[in-house]
Design a protein around this nucleic acid. Structure first.
Lengths: 335, 335
DNA sequence: CTGAAAGCGCTAACAC
DNA sequence: GTGTTAGCGCTTTCAG
């Protein structure tokens, strides 16, 4: 490992500017109590030497790391490839860009990753943490709540209400979707759910049930999927076998809906004439299926935005209230 | 801002274990020269106290940050929402997960972001940098090469060959695509290019030209796009107006191809009978267009993998050779 | 094998 | 306004 070129230090700047180190420090952090003359001398020295403060040293001295982490906990590495997270990250970094904070990404898949996340929560390696997509009984969820680092959750793990979180209105969205189906005159409405060990999965299922309950319709046509296209295919087959009379289906993810659409087609069912379908997420592909997919859209970038904002608020010593972001129905030809 | 709970320090561990701090330190870093007895005493103390080393302090002492950054430089924040980056990140973190390194994400959009990136390159805020998607004359590219931090490029900026990079074989892929069109008996082959200030844009254009040159065909049916769906729409209109006789088109991105497909349809052209089209990237939607899109697939996760691996190699003091990853043709119904 | 001591580069309290 | 002085928590010579 080659030796790093020795970096320009604050003392060098001070010396060159002919002032004390503290004066130089004050200028760098534009603190008061520095005469204009010295201030300028220091600034000149900084420019001349190309001085850049050493973030690590500063962090050690101030006890503030200057970074927050976005941790994504899952057993399957491929879930990160989901464009969903990319958008969340965009939302987050757009607000972080206005601050001095860096964004550290942590994907806790392996037990190794889990351990790191745990250490992170125990030690002061970041000023704050955003935690996403935890499965049901993830012990990390509880640990996070007791951590001495501010933590905001993205979404809510099932069976656990975090102190600080921002979530999409999954339940409301699902209800909206199902009500739309009902309004279209459908009466034998089935559903393909997502993973029931994820908050989004259960919430969307509840929304479906709620809408049917209100309308006094039968809510027993349900098959569980895992959000993936493949599971959508499998589930639709099963649904068709068990409930050949269904005239609509609310599907908890567009990916599953894509798989289901194909099965419906193969089975000779016309969409939407014989069977209406609505998905969830509004992924870009939803516009390009045949027929284009009616779906529920959630404000993903906002989700990231708000998570970051909430963390900032926490860092500032406030106690923000949890946030549930609205979802909306996007009408296309599949209903 | 509330005071952080004071963290457990090495001295406390040492005291509790009844050994010197240096001994404790050696155990933590499992260095030699510690008696078995003491080693175990320390380990017990660590467990009892829940000690986690302070990364910042360690970084300051060792002059190694323990983190690398992935920097994405672009003028448009939305490009990060591209699933492409999500996959690259997955590739990167899967190799980083095997190390002690954290991944810092930096999206340099605003001038603020640019400044931070610049500082990053000048100062020792990270042990290494991966730089992606720089536009043509981005001054950062040059700066990066002179930085005292190892830098590996993802892709090559146009007009500039970085010392260390990993790139997809854009040129080869484009050539493959075009040759496939030629093999299909097409002779009036047009192209919609990507942004010509990005390496991928020019490389794909060159591949197209090359294939036609070898076959002795006319390569003048070209319109420039910017990779976006909308630009594909616009470009296809223009192409049709200027070269109504075209019987095939190689399109430098699937997004543009989607836009183009629609235009072709609206113009009453049958795909692939009247006009064959092949795209580039193999985005997931490509399987769901009508007709499904023949396209060039590049190993995106590998790209991330290899970038990280190359950086690691650099960090280990080696001088790895640049890498160009193969692309391949994915046949679907649009040809 | 063991411990004392000297920093890493910066900030912050405290005197002047 | 200004400079001096202690650290932040850990690693790492260097004697013993």
């Amino acid at each position: 490992m080659k030796l790093p070129k020795r970096q320009v230090t604050l003392d060098e700047v001070a010396e060159r500017a002919g002032v004390s180190r503290s004066a130089a420090s004050r200028v760098i952090n534009n603190a008061p109590h520095v005469s204009k003359a010295k201030r300028e001398a220091v600034q000149r020295a900084v420019a001349a030497l190309g001085y850049v403060p050493n973030a690590t040293a500063r962090a050690l001295a101030t006890q503030q790391v200057g970074a927050v982490v976005l941790a994504i906990s899952s057993d399957n590495p491929q879930v990160f490839a989901d464009p969903f997270f990319a958008e969340v990250v965009v939302g987050i970094s757009s607000v972080l860009e206005e601050t001095e904070l860096e964004l550290i990404l942590m994907m806790a898949t392996s037990s190794r990753g889990q351990t790191r996340l745990e250490q992170l929560l125990r030690s002061r390696q970041a000023d704050g943490v955003m935690l996403m997509s935890m499965h049901g009984d993830d012990p990390l969820a509880r640990l996070a709540e007791q951590a001495d680092v501010p933590v905001v959750f993205g979404g809510r793990p099932v069976g656990f209400e975090p102190r600080y979180y921002v979530d999409a209105d999954n339940r409301g969205g699902a209800r909206l979707a199902t009500e739309h189906l009902i309004a279209g005159g459908r009466t034998r409405i089935a559903t393909i759910t997502g993973r029931m060990d994820e908050g989004a999965g259960t919430a969307r299922y509840k929304g479906y049930q709620e809408a049917l309950a209100v309308a006094g319709l039968d809510a027993s046509r349900v098959v569980h999927g895992d959000f993936s296209e493949e599971s959508g295919t499998r589930a639709m087959h099963e649904l068709l076998a068990r409930h050949p009379d269904l005239d609509a289906v609310f599907i908890a993810s567009d990916q599953m809906a894509i798989g289901a659409l194909r099965v419906l087609q193969d089975a000779g069912k016309q969409v939407p004439d014989d069977v209406a379908v609505v998905g969830f997420n509004d992924i870009t592909t939803a516009r390009h299926t045949t027929p284009p997919l009616t779906t529920i859209s959630q404000p993903i970038q906002s989700l990231g935005n708000q998570m970051a904002q909430m963390l900032l608020s926490l860092l500032a010593g406030n106690q923000p209230t949890p946030l549930i972001l609205p979802t909306r129905l996007v009408l296309r030809a599949s209903t």
